[in-house]
Design a protein around this nucleic acid. Sequence first.
RNA 1: UGCGGGAUAGGAUAAUGGCAGUCCACGGGGCUCAUAUCCCCGAGGCCCAGGUUCGACUCCUGGUCCCGCAACCA
Length: 704
Amino acid sequence: MSTGTDEFPTDRPAVVTCGLPYANGDLHIGHLRGYIGADAYNRALGTLGQQSIYVCGSDMHGTPVAVNAEQQGVDPEDFALEWHEQYEETFPKFNVEFDNYGHTHDETNTELTQDIVRTLDEQGYVYEKEIQVAYDPDADQYLPDRYVEGTCPYCGAKARGDECDEGCQRHLEPGEVEDPKSTITGNPAEYRERTHKFFEVSEFAEFLTDFLDDLEGTSNARNQPRQWIEDGLQDWCITRDMDWGIDYPGDEGEDLVLYVWVDAPIEYISSTKQYSERVGSDEYDWEQVWREEGDIVHFIGRDIIQHHTIFWPAMLEGAGYNKPRGVAATGFITINGKGLSTSRNRAVWAKEYLEEGFHPDLLRYYLTTTGGLQQDVDFSWDAFQEKVNGELVGTVGNFWYRSLLFAYRNYEGTPKADVSEDVENRINGAIEDVREAVNDYSLRGVGAAATELAQFGNEYIQRNEPWKLTDDDPEQAAQVIRDCVQIAKAVAVLLEPIAPDKAQGLWEQLGEEGEIADAHLEHALEAPPRTFEEPGELFEKIEDDRVAELNEKLEERVAAAADDEEEEDDGDEETENDDTDGDEADDMADVDDLEPLAEDRIGFEEFQDVDMRVGRIETAEGIEGADDLARLEVDIGFETRQVVAGIKQLHDLEELPGEKCILLANMEPAELFGVESNGMILAAGDEADLLTTHGDAEVGEKVQ
RNA sequence: UGCGGGAUAGGAUAAUGGCAGUCCACGGGGCUCAUAUCCCCGAGGCCCAGGUUCGACUCCUGGUCCCGCAACCA
C-alpha cells in the first residue's frame, strides 16, 4: 500500500497533478487557480526535500469537443490540438512548470487506457449489457443520456433518459424510458439494441469506504463521497456511441469509444510515464509511483470530486494500481462577488492578465493566499491591489530591499558575523510552519510562513535600529544586518513555491549560484555569499488610477457581453461555473446597451420555418423550486401547449390567464425542472415584456 | 425540494465548554535606514430563537440566509 499516513517529506517519489484542462476554450483565472495551486504545492514539496514531480495534460475527448469541432467544420483532433498547444504555451507564462504535459489523445494515453480497461475486463469488473439505446432516425444518431426524454416506467412521470427527476427520482438505465423522444429534433426516437460496457463500481463500495478513511486533502473531497456510497453506487456505463474518443480495446467494441471520464484521469499516469521515459527510470520510475509505492496528490475543482474519489480509485484498485494519497478540491473563483461567466465574459482571462503587464507571481500570490483551498475566492482588482501593495510591496519587498540595501552600503554584502540564536530559531519556526502547512494541504499557510517571516524581519530591523548603531556600536550593527540578510534569504526560500520568479530575483541579488527552485528549506539557514551588488526593487506598487482603469474595463466588457449573449446555444456541457444570475440592475437602457442588429440576413424561406402563433394563456403557475420559471398552458387553437417561461418574478401570474401572447410553436421541446416546455413565449427586454396582438387576430393564427 | 459545505468587526481568518484573538482597511499619535516600516492608542464582531450548563462562538433542537452538486431564466 502506498498511502502511508506518515508525513511529508517521505522517502517515496511523489506526483502532483491538477485537473485536466478541457480542450475547448480559453483559460481564465478560475482555471489558473488550480494549476497554480498544484504547481505551488509541488514546489513546496520540493523545498521539503520530497522527490516530487508535477504532471498534467489536455483533455481532448468528449461530446463538447466533437460538437464544437463539427460546428467549425474541423476535425476534432485538430480542434483539440489547437487548444492543447495554446495551453502549453500559456502555463510557463504563469510559472506553472509541468515536468510533463501530454494530452489524452496521444499514444501513451491511448495505449495505457486500453491496457487498463483490458485489465478491468479480465479481472471481471466489466460486463456487457444489451441496452436499448434511443436513436434519432432523422438526425441519424444515437441519443445517449439527456438527448432523450420520455415517460418513467415506474411512476409514469415525465423523465429524462437517465433519471426520473420529476417523479420517483429513480436512476434510469438506458432503454428504460418509455415513449422516447429526441431532444435534438423533438421527433419520436426509436430503440435500437446496442451492447455497452459497464464497470462494476458497486463492487467497490467497501474498498472506497476504507479508501476515504485514509484519504488526505480537503474536507469536501473526503466527506462528500461518503453519502454517495451510502446511497448505493451504480455501475458505470463506460462506453459511448461516438467516433471521437479512445476505442474500446479488442474487436468487440467496434463503434464504441470509451467515455471521456475513463481516459481523462489515466492521463495522470500516462504523463508520469512520459516523464519517466524522458529522464530515465533511474531518476524517476513511474511504475514505482503508480504500482508500488508513491505519494499521489490530485488537485481538482470541487465539481469533479465524484470522478476522483469514486470512479477513479475504483478503476485504480480494479486494475492493480496505487490510489491517491490526497485529493485537494479547490473552490471556485468569483469576480467582484459574482460567479464567473464565460458566456457573459465576466471573467479575467489568462491572456488578459498578462497583457496588462502584471507579473505572474502577483496573481500566484493572490490566488494561493486568499482564502483556504476549498473556499470560494473572490477576485477583484481592488483586492488584488491591496494584497500586492500591502503584503508583497510593503512587507516582503520593503524588507528585502531595505535589508540588502543597508548591507550593501555598509558592508558591500553580508556582514561578517554569525546569525544570532533568536533569528535562527525564528527561521526554524517558519520552516516548521511550511512543513505543517504542506501536510495540511494549506497553500495559504505556506505563503503565510513567508510573509510572516518578512514581517518579523521588519520588526527586527526596526527594533534594533542598526542605522543608529553603525557609529556607536559597529559590531552590533553588523550583527543585526547579518541577521536581516539571513532572514531575507530565508523569506526567498520560503516564498519560492508561491512566487518562484521573484524569489529567484532575490537569490540573484544575494549573489547565490543556481536556481532557488532547487533549494530546500534547510538552505534558508545557510550563509549567503559574502559580497553582492546593489539591490533593486523586486516589487512595484499598483497605483490607484490603474485599478480604476481595470475595473472600468471589466465592467464595460461584462455589460457588452450581457447584451450579446443568447446568440449562442453552447450545448450542455459548458463546464466551470457558468452561473448566469446577472440580472441585477444594469438598467441604463442607452442605445449603446442595446443588442446590435443582426448582420446576417435571412431569406423568406427561413422565416417560414419559424412557426409563431397567436395564443391565449389559460393557466399560469410558478414551478416549485425554481426562482423564475412558470408553467403556462397556452391555447393555440389546434391544441393547448404547456410551456415553461422565465417570468415568475416579473409578472403577476394570477393576471396572466386570458391574456393573448405570441408563441413560437415549433420550438424544440425541452425539459426544465422536470416540466416539459413545448414552445416559447415571446417577450422583450430584461422585464420580459410579453408580446401580444392588439387587433382582432384569432387564437391559432400564424404570425407573418 | 434532495445531498453536502458554510455563516465570527467593512473584508479575510482563529479559538473542541472558561476574559472572542490575529491580519488588512478605518480614526488619532510617535519613529524613520527603506518602495512608510515599526510602535502606541482608538472605534468596530459570534445569523436568529429556544434548550443543556455555574458558564455556550463551541454541545442539542428549530428557523433564516449564503455557496456548491442534482434540475433553470426556451
